[in-house]
Design a protein around this nucleic acid. Structure first.
Length: 399
DNA sequence: AAGCTTGGCAACCGCCTAAAA
DNA sequence: TTTTTAGGCGGTTGCCAAGCT
């Protein structure tokens, strides 16, 4: 039962804006700022409701709007963030500063969604539609892991975003110019079985206390990473243990890993968050083994995909399919920057489906290839999402 | 050339949330 | 503490242009 629309008033104009109306609105805002949108139309001499003025300004008249075709990089960013955030267009738009949420939403609905669907990727779940790795009950075997990982990473990012925001508030609490970021909605979804950052950071506390606790929480989080990394031969592996444990998710941080980023958002960080899929990989691997694939060294396409397609340097493919990006992998960054992650991913899909062609999915015995590709794509896909987010502007209001 | 279909996009609508009263 | 209201968000609609028959 929301409020009645603000445009009920008779006599208010609806529909497309005329150049004259645009001019009036533009002139008024340039001179006075928009102030109260509700009061603006009468002050500006417009027969429109405030909401309509606001939309027109935000989506069209604002001077810092970039219009026209979306670049490959922008497409990639949208796809990646959509995989992580879903239809939260305003959050996605914060990573494309010159694009409006409406424009992104439209572009998704008219272009990207269809393109992904064409490629056989479910635009909602970002997973292959005809999943050859379905379990008996029709659930993708690794889907739950991916979902959990995304949820946990989201929670972590939320905490980081809060921390940054709160630190700034703390440091600049007298600066009214600081833009307030919107309070993030509860995320990850309620299905998440353990603590979320929302629980870690109760809203009732003062910003300073919250910042302090945020810091502690993040320290604990990151300490956990580094501690458990000891003895893993340089690959920092951490099950989300203790009170942050997720039953299915395992993330990995690496101190010396260089981020493979196609977006150009991040450059030179020494630490990049990367999903190692240790939990999911081993479970997937176990499942593959159970299905007669033996060990993962019998997944040549998987390894080849790492070495060629994404230029990974693999470590011990047999044990846990752990892989990391080393300095050698930097060429990947350049390659991807040229080719674009989206193309890389989507072309892989196309080529694969074409090569599988005619006979469709080899869902029986031949699923080794599909399984490995699926796994590889998941890893690549989500790693790149996380790298994207990790290298995003610190003031991004992603949540 | 005319009619029809499809795709793209601007704008609207309804709901939610947080702030103000 | 409760109610009201402005702003914001995501879903949807409807218009228009381009392409097709």
């Amino acid at each position: 039962m929301g409020r009645s629309p603000c445009c009920d008033k008779v006599g208010l104009k609806k529909g497309p804006w005329t150049p004259e109306e645009d001019q009036k609105l533009l002139a008024y805002i340039e001179e006075h700022g928009h102030g109260s949108w509700r009061a603006l139309p009468s002050k500006a001499g417009l027969q429109r409701c405030g909401k309509s003025c606001r939309l027109r300004w935000i989506n069209y008249l604002r001077p810092d709007i970039k219009r026209g075709k979306f670049s490959l990089q922008e497409e990639q960013t949208i796809i990646q963030l959509h995989a992580l955030l879903g239809n939260r267009w305003s959050a996605i738009a914060t990573h494309l500063p010159k694009r409006t949420d409406n424009e992104i939403k439209n572009y998704w609905n008219t272009h990207l969604k269809k393109r992904l669907a064409k490629m056989g990727i479910d635009p909602v779940t970002h997973k292959p539609k005809n999943d050859a790795l379905l379990t008996g009950d029709g659930q993708p075997k690794c889907a739950a892991n991916l979902s959990h990982i995304a949820q946990w990473e989201s929670a972590r990012l939320e905490a980081e975003a809060r921390l940054v925001r709160e630190s700034r508030l703390r440091n600049n609490n007298s600066h009214s110019s600081l833009q307030q970021l919107p309070n993030p909605p509860c995320f990850p979804p309620s299905s998440s079985s353990t603590s979320t950052s929302a629980q870690l950071l109760p809203n009732s506390d003062s910003p300073a206390a919250m910042a302090s606790r945020s810091l502690e929480a993040l320290k604990a989080w990151n300490n956990g990473w580094s501690k458990s990394a000891e003895g893993t031969g340089g690959i920092l592996t951490r099950g989300i243990g203790g009170d942050l444990e997720s039953p299915t998710s395992t993330l990995t941080f690496s101190e010396n890993v260089l981020p493979v980023m196609a977006t150009g958002c991040g450059e030179g960080e020494n630490s990049a968050a990367m999903i190692e899929f240790v939990g999911s990989s081993s479970s997937c691997e176990r499942e593959w083994k159970e299905e007669g694939f033996g060990n993962s060294s019998q997944l040549p396409e998987y390894k080849e995909g790492f070495e060629n397609s994404m230029s990974f340097t693999s470590h011990d493919m047999t044990l846990s399919i752990e892989a990391t990006w080393t300095a050698e992998s930097l060429r990947t960054k350049e390659a991807i920057a040229e080719e674009g992650f989206t193309n890389l991913l989507l072309n892989n899909k196309v080529e694969r489906s074409q090569s599988e062609g005619g006979g469709g999915e080899d869902s029986e015995n031949g699923s080794g290839s599909a399984a490995s590709d699926y796994y590889e794509d998941n890893k690549n896909y989500w790693n790149s999402i996380l790298n994207l987010v990790n290298s995003s502007p610190s003031n991004s209001s992603i949540f």
